[in-house]
Amino acid sequence: MQQKDIKRLTMLLLFAPFALWILLLILLPHIGMVILSLREKVAPRVYEFGFGNYIDFAMEPIYWNTLLRTGSMALLVTALALLIGFPIAYYIAKVAGFRTRGALFLLCLIPLWVSDLIRAFGWILLLRETGVISTFLQWSGAIDGPIEFLYNDATVVVGLVYTVILFMIVPLVSTLDGMDNSMIEAGYNLGGNGFTVLRRIIVPYAMPGIVSGCIVVFMLTAGSYLTPILLGGKNSSWFTEQIYDQFITRFNWESGAAFGFLLLAFTSLVIWLGLKLSGQTLANTVAKS
């Protein structure tokens, strides 16, 4: 009997930090944010319950255009990261020799720990008007005057793909690594060509890794702040910038909270759709890594 009580007490003690963490730092803050977003300012220091902040959002095309733009660019970045990253992951997991594999994987892991700020800074030094690439092209005679490569959407997309692609490659390498080579060989022996084997055997096997990578990459991109601002300039129209603007510049917390909730709801919806379409669940993708 006493043994059982001790066990129950231990479980309770182990449960307490988890519960405090989730309750105080995740659940309550988000509830607080939603409540704040439903508060309208009618006069100085007088507030009323209502959907005014959301109505403002719906009535102002700049706001929802920015959200849609952020969402569609994040989807584009996710697709590009998958297209560019999958062959790299496959090379590391299946094509490279044993020694090269470890070295290449390490090369992928180390930049992961370099701050976004430094990576964006590096791109600025390469791409700006007085930057390395512009100077080099002038020196080589390919162009006559300096070219500004910064502050356009293509640069933002490249910068974002660069920032997040390793979060795609690393889970893909782990998934593909666990795949038995004989499965691929069997596919070839049964008469499949390279494309069929890829489509019918490799991709279905790697699906949990693909979905997990896509979720993380999409969320990181949609929630990113530094890369779009630094590479896209002040007019990059990124949704997190709107949130910052409402909170810090205009001190309109109610509207900022509404924007925050909209971003969370929108990204969750996209991920839910993605999981439904691919037939995966959160439990066997992100929670597994």
Partner: peptide, 24 residues
């Protein structure tokens, strides 16, 4: 279910974690 709840903070955008904790 709680295990999934434990994983979720990793996929919430950092900006939103920041503002929600600031608000509370």
């Amino acid at each position: 279910a709680l295990y999934i709840v434990m994983v979720i903070p990793l996929v919430i955008p950092g900006v939103i974690l920041g503002i929600s904790i600031l608000v509370l």
